[in-house]
């Protein structure tokens, strides 16, 4: 039962991403062609609200469910892995028109061919795990 809250957050996330059209292949294409403000508006307001939320939490006005300090874990230092990995992901994002969250959400909307993409993405992650030590980070 402790998972019910995560299931509800997931359902809410899925609904929001469909209703916002952020799962639309066309919206991603439009964004990368600079032909629409829509996706920039979504990401921009999400980040603006996120910054506001985290700044308020930082001041100690908001606490987690167990009463502890709220913060996003610090990312490891680095440059190469973020720029190279990010670029590789970006190529896939614009081709499939979906990032990892929408891959699952689209499956729920009835795009069953996403199963192929998800399987390939799991395999891509596996390849990274195997090659990790040989790659520049």
């Amino acid at each position: 039962m402790k998972f019910i809250k995560f299931l509800l957050v997931g359902i809410f996330f899925g609904i929001v991403l469909v209703k916002s059209e952020a799962v639309s292949w066309y919206r991603i294409y439009e964004m990368f062609r600079f032909q629409s403000f829509h996706m920039y508006g979504i990401i921009g307001t999400a980040v603006a609200c996120g910054i506001l939320f985290l700044q308020i939490s930082k001041k100690g006005y908001l606490k987690s469910i167990k009463g502890s300090f709220i913060s996003v874990p610090k990312k490891e230092d680095g440059f190469k892995k973020y720029i190279i990995g990010g670029t590789i992901f970006g190529l896939g994002w614009a081709l499939i028109g979906a990032c990892p969250g929408p891959l699952y959400i689209l499956l729920g909307t009835g795009v069953y061919s996403m199963i192929i993409v998800i399987a390939a993405a799991i395999f891509g992650t596996f390849i990274y795990g195997v090659l990790k030590d040989k790659l520049p980070h």
Partner: peptide, 16 residues
Amino acid sequence: LIIGGLLVGFGTRYAD
């Protein structure tokens, strides 16, 4: 679809 999936899976983990 397979190439796109591979790029997404490999790239996201590489970029963490």
